[in-house]
């Protein structure tokens, strides 16, 4: 792996980068802070997948996590709603805070956490239920039974996900699986919105979609940014450049552990990256 060989001590470099992140975000008032991670490492059965990542995410912003396959971006993303809990043998070290509260605390309800931090997956995965039931799924599980309330919530969620006009005529008759890939992904977004989240995690949400559907999802993300904090993992650097406010570049060390190389305003990362590794990656010389 020639690229990493040029930086024999990547972890030490990361610490230098860390200080520049603090400098870039120094103007940020603490009230704006939505999520922060402190020295987060993830291990799968003892093997480190993500090493020592500390970063901060501002409210109502879009953070893009970019980097080559295996750099731990998705694993890191899954720390924010504790989806790594589901993987046998996975351990998360360090601290992830949502609104200043450590989500790893023993008293934290994972169910409540995942309502506040929703997730959209790489492959659109609507339930094999009607469109209506897909959107109503989360609220129903929290005991919302009123038909009128559910009707309204389903409508507003589908409207926010820019899907309402296409599906309003057969909400109850049509299965979520009968929609096109792009529509399915917007249905999944509507399903998350219906749970009234604060943060939306997107794990390569457009990688299985055609270019037109991809653009629609990106437009949607820009709109959602008005009300939600979004973290997106993407392989598509143009996508990161188009939609995100802040970009974090991950790569992996020689021991295959993913780590954060640098993070900063998207414009700067793509025009004047501080790190050789970042420059190599975004200019296509790596990954």
């Amino acid at each position: 792996m020639p690229t990493t060989a040029t930086f024999p001590q990547p972890v030490i470099r990361r610490v230098e980068v860390g200080s520049s992140i603090v400098a870039e975000q120094a103007a940020t008032a603490p009230a704006d802070l939505k999520i922060s991670t402190e020295h987060v490492s993830v291990k799968y059965s003892g093997k480190t997948a993500v090493r020592d990542v500390s970063l901060e995410i501002r409210e109502r912003s879009i953070l893009a996590l970019i980097g080559p396959s295996g750099s731990g971006k998705s694993t890191f993303l899954r720390c924010f709603n504790r989806m790594n809990d589901l993987i046998p043998g996975a351990t998360v070290e360090g601290e992830v805070c949502l609104d200043g509260e450590d989500i790893g605390d023993a008293g934290v309800s994972v169910v409540e956490l995942r309502r506040r931090v929703g997730m959209v997956f790489q492959r659109p995965n609507p339930f094999p239920m009607s469109i209506y039931e897909n959107v109503a799924y989360g609220p129903r599980r929290r005991g919302m039974n009123s038909r009128a309330q559910l009707d309204e919530l389903v409508e507003t969620s589908l409207k926010r996900a820019a899907l309402w006009d296409e599906v309003k005529d057969d909400l109850r008759r049509k299965s979520g699986l009968a929609l096109s890939g792009g529509q399915q992904q917007r249905l999944c977004i509507a399903r998350v919105l219906a749970t009234d989240p604060e943060v939306i995690l997107m794990d390569e949400p457009a990688s299985a979609l055609d270019p037109v559907s991809t653009l629609r999802i990106e437009e949607l993300m820009r709109e959602l940014r008005e009300n939600y904090t979004i973290v997106i993992v993407t392989h598509n650097m143009q996508q990161a450049a188009r939609v995100s406010d802040v970009t974090a570049f991950f790569t992996m060390a020689e021991d295959r552990a993913g780590y954060l190389v640098e993070m900063g305003p998207t414009g700067r990362i793509f025009t004047r990256p501080a790190e050789r590794l970042t420059e190599d990656y975004i200019s296509g010389r790596f990954g």
Partner: peptide, 19 residues
């Protein structure tokens, strides 16, 4: 995928199994 989708929406394990 189906289990993950349900759990990520804040459903409990039993709700995921049941529904």
């Amino acid at each position: 995928d189906e289990r993950q989708a349900s759990l990520a929406l804040g459903a409990t394990k039993w709700q995921t199994i049941r529904h």
